[in-house]
């Protein structure tokens, strides 16, 4: 499979360049003119092999190899809520040959006192994915629409349960933002085992709803055992075209969309030319056709942001997470 994809990509190089536009061509040209990168690049993945971030990082790296002309070697460094892996990358030489794919803990670690670490300690290469939350109930729930849901929550403040990750992950804050936006008081239940555990609990009727990524509930949605009521992004998702966004459901949006994201970072102090080469390569990778097909198949959300756009996004998420987590006390 791995080999097939790599083989399949090489001949498609020209096509992708056309599809993506001149960014890619410029990147390819400058890559050939520059001395960077001269040898393979290590991509630290601070999560276990086989998980969502691992998948996204490996697929994006495969796509980026094309623009860079060298291979990117993934190295899993799991444990410690992804903090040790990120710190290892942070302390590596800023030569562009060590990168890390970070996830939501980069925006929560400092606020929760886990580690004094944020995206400002890195040079930001680019966002490769963003998953908005989907409010999901069991298929046999009497809550048919998001209006039913809001109605129930309004009449029973603090009672309607919504399963999420604990606060270091994205879904607790996403549920808190949903509360703030809708003016509801929900009962947010954290699952330290992660979103999959929350979904298991939903199937067993121990919580009445979950607020996690579409990918986590997608196979159950296809099997008809769950129902998605609303999605917390600015536009509807292609896989669930009938499901309204928070906006459409009349839940006013004072906050930017909040959810889980994956971002490629480099140790701080990279020479600007090398940073640009990496940014271009991953910006193109995040829009690579095969990469986006992979995202669609497993219902991961699309997002490609490079450079200043990515930094602005991370600044926003970092502040938002801080605000919400501070209000938890």
């Amino acid at each position: 499979m791995y080999m097939q994809i790599t083989r399949g990509l090489r001949p498609a190089r020209g096509l992708i360049a056309v599809a993506v536009g001149c960014t890619m061509i410029v990147a390819a040209q400058s890559a050939s003119a520059q001395s960077f990168p001269e040898h393979e690049i290590t991509m630290i993945i601070p999560f276990a092999a086989g998980g969502g971030t691992d998948q996204a990082a490996r697929r994006a790296s495969m796509a980026a190899e094309d623009g860079l002309g060298v291979s990117i070697v993934p190295e899993n460094r799991p444990g410690g809520g992804s903090i040790p892996g990120m710190m290892e990358a942070m302390r590596s030489a800023p030569d562009g040959y060590t990168l890390v794919t970070a996830a939501t803990p980069i925006a929560t670690a400092q606020h929760l006192g886990i580690a004094d670490l944020s995206h400002e300690d890195f040079d930001v290469v680019g966002l490769i994915n963003f998953d908005p939350p989907v409010i999901t109930v069991a298929a046999d729930s009497e809550l048919q629409t998001i209006e039913d849901y809001v109605e129930r929550a309004k009449n029973n403040p603090g009672q309607l349960t919504i399963g999420t990750t604990p606060p270091q992950g994205a879904w607790h804050v996403a549920a808190r933002v949903f509360e703030e936006q809708s003016g509801l008081d929900l009962n947010i239940v954290p699952f330290p085992g992660g979103a999959a555990e929350a979904v298991t609990s939903l199937l067993g009727d121990h919580v009445e709803s979950v607020g996690v990524s579409l990918g986590e509930v997608y196979s159950h949605l296809n099997a008809g055992t769950v129902r998605v009521l609303a999605v917390g992004s600015s536009e509807r998702m292609a896989q669930i075209p009938d499901v309204p966004t928070y906006d459409e459901a009349g839940i006013t949006t004072d906050f930017p969309p909040v959810g889980a994201f994956r971002v490629v970072l480099a140790p701080k102090g990279l020479p600007s030319e090398e940073l640009e080469i990496l940014r271009d390569a991953f910006f193109a990778a995040a829009q690579d056709e095969e990469y986006m097909d992979f995202l669609d198949e497993f219902a991961f959300g699309h997002m490609a942001l490079a450079g200043d756009d990515a930094i602005a996004f991370l600044d926003e998420q970092f502040e938002l997470f801080g605000e919400i987590l501070a209000s938890n006390e």
Partner: peptide, 20 residues
């Protein structure tokens, strides 16, 4: 490790590895 409800760091003595 981490507090299962609040997510706060608990007796990790500054070792991020202990967070899990």
């Amino acid at each position: 490790g981490s507090d299962p409800v609040s997510g706060a760091s608990r007796m990790t003595f500054g070792f991020p590895e202990l967070y899990s």
